[in-house]
Each structure stands twice: as C-alpha cells, then as structure tokens.
Design a protein around this nucleic acid. Sequence first.
DNA 1: AGTCTCAAGACGTCTAGAGGAGTTCGTGCG
DNA 2: CGCACGAACTCCTCTAGACGTCTTGAGACT
Lengths: 258, 258
Amino acid sequence: MQLGVIDRADDRPPYRQIADHLRAAIDRGDLVAGDKLPSEAELIEHYGVARMTVRQAVQELRNEGRVVAEHGRGTFVRQPVQVRRLASERFARRHREAGLAAFSVEAQKTGFTPNVDQLEVSTGPATPEIRDRLRLGDDEEVVVRSRRYLADGQPVETAVSYLPASVAAGSRIVEADTGPGGIYARLEDMGFELDHFTEEISARMPSAEERRRLQLTDGVPVVVLVRTAYDTTGRPLEVCDTLKAAPAYVLEYEVPAR
Amino acid sequence: MQLGVIDRADDRPPYRQIADHLRAAIDRGDLVAGDKLPSEAELIEHYGVARMTVRQAVQELRNEGRVVAEHGRGTFVRQPVQVRRLASERFARRHREAGLAAFSVEAQKTGFTPNVDQLEVSTGPATPEIRDRLRLGDDEEVVVRSRRYLADGQPVETAVSYLPASVAAGSRIVEADTGPGGIYARLEDMGFELDHFTEEISARMPSAEERRRLQLTDGVPVVVLVRTAYDTTGRPLEVCDTLKAAPAYVLEYEVPAR
DNA sequence: AGTCTCAAGACGTCTAGAGGAGTTCGTGCG
DNA sequence: CGCACGAACTCCTCTAGACGTCTTGAGACT
C-alpha cells in the first residue's frame, strides 16, 4: 500500500497529511471495507512521528465514520453507509397504520423480525419547544409516550410522542397498550379528524446516551424526524420526535409529480 | 458554574467524566448557546490533569456538535441544531418548479438572498450505483449536472443530477442553462410524462472536501437525499443526489393523512 | 484432542512538557 | 484622537514517553 511521506513544506499539519494519505488509500481501493489499517506502531515507524500524531490522524477518519477502531484488534475500514437498507417506509402505509403495526408490515416485506420495547408513558409539563409546536399554554401538560424499535434485535429507531394532556386524558392513549390501530385510531374514536402531517427532517451527532440506546459506533449521525399531526381545524394533536440510526435506515418517500 | 471533581473510583476515565460534567452544565443551562467554556488552562487547574486530557474531553463535545472551538478566542456552546430554519420546502412546489426557481420562491418567503453557482455539466460513464438506479446497461453514459445553492452567500446545499445520455442528448439539458422550468420542463417538452418521485433520506459525516464545499464546521453531519424521478411507464429519468447542510436546513414535508 | 497460560500486539488513557498561531485589548507613541 | 505594538490569553500541534486493557495465537499441560 502506498502512503507517501510527510511534506514539511506543505502547510497542512502532519496529522492531516497522514489522514489524507489513509483516506486516499481507501478511496483508491487499496483498502476496502473490512481491511485493517496499518497499526499505530507501523504508522509511527513509516512516518517518523509520535504516537499521538498518528492517533490524531486516525481519529479524523473515525470521526468521518470511515474506519472503526477495535480495542486489541486493530482499526478497520468500515462498510460505506446506507449499504444495508433495513427498511423503507411509504407515507401512505406509515400513516394508515401506527407504530409497531407499520413496522411489522415493513418487517414482513423486508424479512426482519420486528420488536418494540421500552414503552414508557407519563404525563407532565412540556418543554418550550413542544409547547410551541402543540400551541399550548405555559401550564398545559402533555402525555409522553416513548418507545424503541428493533429489527432482528438491533435497535434502529427511538420515538417519543407528545400529545396535549387535554386531548389524551381519559383515553387509552395514556395506557401502555393503546389498542388496535394505535393512537391515531383512538384519536379518531374520540372524534378528532386527522387532516395532514408535516415532517421536518434533519441530522445531528447523537449524544453518548442516544448512541447507547441505538447501539451506534462513533462517527455515525442520527436522522432526526419531527412529525406533527393536525386535525381538520388546523389544531396540532401530536408531535412525534424520532431518532433513526442513519446508516442502517433509509427513509423512502413516494410522491406524485404534481 | 458547578463542575465537580474526578472520581478515581468511577470506572469511566477522567476525560469522559470531565466531558460529562461539561455536557451536564450545558443541559442544566449553566452554559447556554454562545457562552464560553472554561479555557483549557482553567480546566487543567480545576481538575488537576494534563492538557491532552482536557482536550480529549472537549473533543468529545465537539464531535457531538455541542460546542465549537475558535482558535485564539475560546470554545463556545453552539446553537442547538435546527434552530435556524433557513428554508423549508413543500413537495408540490419543489417538483413543479425546478432547481433555482424553487429555491428562489422559498427565498422570497423566508427572506434570504438566493444564489446558485458551480454549475458543471458533463457526459460520461456512470458509477455502478447510478447505473443501477437508472437501470442502465454497462456501456450507457449519463449526463451529470452539479450545482451548489447559497442563501445569503452561505452554501446550504450541493446537488448532482444524473440523466441517461440517451434521454438528455440533443436537448438543452446538456447545456449549462436549461431554460425556463429547468430540466423537468425540458423532459416534458420532449414528450416524457413525469409520474412520481421517490426520495431516500439518510445522513452521514461529510468528507473534508464536502465540508469545505458546504463550509461546515467539525461535528456536523450532512443530510443525504437521493431523489429518483420516474415517467408513467416506470422508467427512471433522473437521479438527483443532494447534500444538505444539516443544522441550517430542515426539510419540511406536508402530506394528507390518508 | 482439548484446555490453560502467557506473551505479543493492538488500541486506550494519561503525563509534562514545548513552541506555534490567532485574537483581544491596553498602552504608548505620533 | 488614531494607530501600531506588544502582552496576555486562547486553542493547535507535537514530542517521548508510561501504563492499562483487550484480543489473539502459540505453546505447554492435561
């Protein structure tokens, strides 16, 4: 494998030059997914720099998610993201069925074993952001429903729903088991007419806690999806905050051209 | 500000404890967006550890995108992601108009100055992935159109479109200026009937090159959006690969409930 | 053959420095 | 008053080590 040497005339610092060499080796195909990078000792030997310098170089690639270090074994080139498309979702299906039901339908098609856990339901004050989205007053409380979806035992998504307590109170929405059709069916039972949804999609690096819950390695971002459901009067009935394990999970939307 | 001390009995290493202390201070609100973290010297003094140790702690928060270091000034708590909603897009509008036109309409509503640059058009062989998405044979070439969108001079999105050369050949699609309505209008001029689109959304860490083109700081992921447009016969006519600067750019979709 | 032990090799964490480069701001000079 | 300069402070890069934990595989033992 060709790595080159450090050019002291280059204005980039040595650690960055080393990182670029390694990245180029991956891009060239000298190193493919699963291959082991040269060990730290070998890089020190090759470049004639201190250990912290080669570690900083490798750290760059780890932060980019291109390699993953395994304690005691070595550092390996990672499979490029979104190779596995664990599940896709179609809008229509997603919103006709709710929660685990939609996930199960997808599972049948894609061939994984679906599971859901960590369902917690509580009622309490809302954060300013949720209050804003649900257009609530300062004192109004919300019902919070959180859960985690797994595919073949692997966590792929966490979701937290917020509903105004005034809407959910007295219904099965405040219970762990909402019954068939999920909370959307319950809302319709209660006379609310669901009209449309907005979804805001962004991405960010997960916190250590979120990384733990989704069993993510370093350098992998999560897709953040915030769905708000409105009734025919334009009143927001639910905000659902979803974190998706990005490399494993690709959303797929289908829309008409006009 | 309350930071605590390192607990040698704790099984977490010191640098992680320090990172947790700082993260907790932010979560508690002791430090809010724009605030300066204690300097490295102050953290060394407070915790009684070496410089590399406090740097490693701060590096954790930088990787999470919660703080940003400014050379010579200090390290500052970053605005939480998606506070600025530079632009939102609605499906209908997005696909009736094309490219800069849609971007400009959005600009008018949201109040930024739109711009587009780096438009390059070329024809050549396709990557295996693009060939697969466009259902092309091994020898078929594609027309590649790349551009970058800016809002108030700030890059917010890069996009690369791929069309089968057999579709685009002889039309204005192979020219830098496609004329009014963009490539979708040209495709319709040529008798192709656009039927529907799929969009796959994921996220990943950008490469150094991508970070440069979008002027992103460390620790910020990009949202990757791959749109495929089909005609009424189900033939894929275009694949558009889009990178969005995640924290500044939140997609917004609106869909009917059923 | 199967199991245990141990050493080598890999990455993880940390120390105690050094010099460099960018930013800020006060001070003194013109 | 305006400007140049320098000190102080900040983060950046790097050195040359030390010891730790984890993994693997060779070799000894049963």
